[in-house]
Nucleic acid binder design. Structure first.
Lengths: 144, 144
DNA sequence: GTCAATGCAAAAGCTTTGCAAGCGC
DNA sequence: GCGCTTGCAAAGCTTTTGCATTGAC
């Protein structure tokens, strides 16, 4: 685990304790797995990564913990097309996703202009946006 | 069934036959259910609506038929947050969706500008977009 | 010590599939 | 008539849940 990851982990732990969330070995293992992931792992992948730190983690606990973390706003859940849900820490600025259809890679991007247009559209329709989902699915351009 | 719906149904049937898709009573019932729906029904809802025309339709056939129709580009499948997949005929211009979190209503909208920005973003990242998903989830503004 | 969190296994919810019978073309 | 389509029931997958036990605070 890198120093940066350890710092993130410490911070997450403090924040969660402050919210009254109980910290268990399993939860720390799952948080560590999240902090150590730069991709967008599935529950199964998080189970495997958590077990490297604490083999006692079960899939049920991964799901229950993710549920708690999503509730508290610590984790974001993504339901990309195709497979099961994918998770990521919410400690980054808001962003949307571009999914590489060939490799499954997920690229994060942001666009103030698109965000703004979404607000305008909702406004015209008489709505307040609570959250949104923008996913681009594509293939890398051939190198020329 | 309105005259307009009957026309849509005729057209769908012709197109599918032209593509070599076999037309069965069940498939016609499912197509009619789709043509007669202005909302975005689930497979279960389509089953119920199809059975009004042909009670022999089974859920397995609804799914298998939808699969054929999605393959042929006749139907679009939406995986909105929350429940199961929702379907709609693809015979309208491209649009995105705003989902009312209180009522579940789905409002369609289009924005050339957002589409264009998406293209630009993909371009910058070196990708060609194959398809995308843009969903706004919100609540109706309070009337003042 | 109390009450929440865990592991396990069973269940749930949606969707798919194997198989024998039926039916479109 | 041939081969695709159907209904039924069973199975698949991901996610959730009941229950007895463990463990955090």
């Amino acid at each position: 685990m890198t120093t940066a990851e350890a710092e993130i982990l410490d911070e997450l732990e403090s924040e969660l304790r402050a919210e009254g969330v109980r910290i268990t070995r399993q939860r720390m293992a799952i948080l560590a797995a999240l902090a150590g992931s730069t991709d967008h792992p599935t529950a199964e992948e998080l189970l495997a990564r958590s077990r490297e730190r604490d083999p006692s983690v079960s899939l049920a606990t991964v799901y229950r913990t993710l549920s708690v973390l999503v509730e508290s706003g610590t984790v974001l859940r993504n339901d990309f097309e195709g497979a099961g849900a994918r998770f990521e820490l919410a400690n980054k600025p808001h962003h949307d996703h571009l999914i590489d259809l060939d490799t499954g890679d997920v690229i994060e991007f942001t666009s103030r202009r698109i965000e703004k247009l979404q607000e305008e559209i909702a406004e015209e329709l008489g709505y307040d946006i609570v959250f949104h989902r923008l996913e681009l699915y594509g293939r890398a351009k051939k190198k020329v």
